[in-house]
């Protein structure tokens, strides 16, 4: 039996959303609004803080550097993550669990411990440098450089690439590869023409996640990178905690948010699936 309810009353199921909406509004919406409010002069309706971003000679440079670092991290994790995720679809349940645990390991270590761990590994004459030197690359400096930061960030962000990829690759019917081979494609061609296009949703989702998260990295570049090569999050930190320039920081934060949202929107149109991202964010949490 259906119980009737006045048309203007929403379905009672919506009531369940109230706690979540209240929490999000309280801890995300309000502060976001506050910093935006400050960035436009707290009611003075000025755009000076925004124009300053484009004229101070620092912000744009740091923004570009951040974008570049995030892009490199995205490419590195894609190149590492694709074969990894592929392997995950090919092994049995036991080995799959092992691979998942391995890739999620960074999440279960504290951010500080992990970064100091990298610090020790990356120091001049540290383990990594000496290992690379075995192959003749004895002039690679990792501590205090963009390369070192890329390496450490890639490790943390790998799961955000691997998990959406795994979910996309796992859904591809392997018989399509057999079909392609029977139709005349050598294995690599079959992969490129059939398998890879079908994995595009996962690739785009993984790239959006990794790129946007990489744009916001703070601890890793601060500890491992050089102060002369700071990224956007450090700039934000500096403005809020040292310069106490909340209006400027608000403007910068808003700019970064808008740029990120535009990127996400664009990439989503390119074939990424927000559902995949949601599922993965749910699986991993978003601690950094």
């Amino acid at each position: 039996m259906m119980t009737s309810r006045p048309r203007w009353l929403p379905h009672p199921g919506w009531l369940l959303l109230i706690p979540a909406v209240a929490l999000l509004g309280g801890i995300l919406g309000v502060p976001l609004w506050q910093s935006f409010w400050r960035s436009i002069g707290s009611g003075d309706w000025t755009l000076e803080h925004y124009s300053a971003l484009f004229t101070d000679g620092v912000t744009l440079k740091v923004l570009a550097r951040t974008g570049q670092a995030a892009a490199v991290v995205t490419i590195v994790t894609l190149l590492l993550g694709y074969p990894y995720a592929y392997l995950m679809t090919r092994v049995g349940p036991l080995w799959r669990s092992v691979l998942v645990v391995m890739v999620l390991m960074p999440f279960w270590t504290s951010a500080l411990a992990r970064n100091f761990g990298w610090l020790i590994l990356l120091y001049d004459n540290g383990l990594v440098q000496r290992f690379i030197a075995l192959f003749g690359f004895d002039d690679v400096v990792l501590y205090g450089t963009a390369q070192g930061v890329t390496l450490a960030m890639s490790q943390v962000l790998l799961p955000f690439m691997v998990l959406p990829l795994f979910s996309a690759l796992g859904g591809i019917d392997r018989r399509l590869l057999l079909a392609a081979r029977s139709l005349g494609s050598p294995p690599l061609v079959a992969f490129w023409k059939v398998y890879f296009p079908l994995s595009r949703g996962g690739v785009v989702a993984g790239c959006i996640l990794t790129f946007t998260l990489a744009c916001g990295f703070y601890v890793t570049p601060a500890l491992i990178g050089s102060p002369r090569e700071s990224l956007i999050a450090q700039l934000l930190g500096q403005r809020t905690t040292q310069l106490l320039d909340f209006a400027g920081a608000g403007a910068l934060g808003t700019l970064v948010l808008v740029v990120t949202l535009v990127l996400v929107w664009w990439a989503n149109r390119m074939g990424g699936s927000m559902a995949t991202i949601g599922a993965v964010a749910g699986q991993t949490g978003t601690r950094r």
Partner: peptide, 13 residues
Amino acid sequence: PAHKRNLGMVFQN
């Protein structure tokens, strides 16, 4: 290899 055999294949799915 399969791609050189020139055989047409139809699968159940």
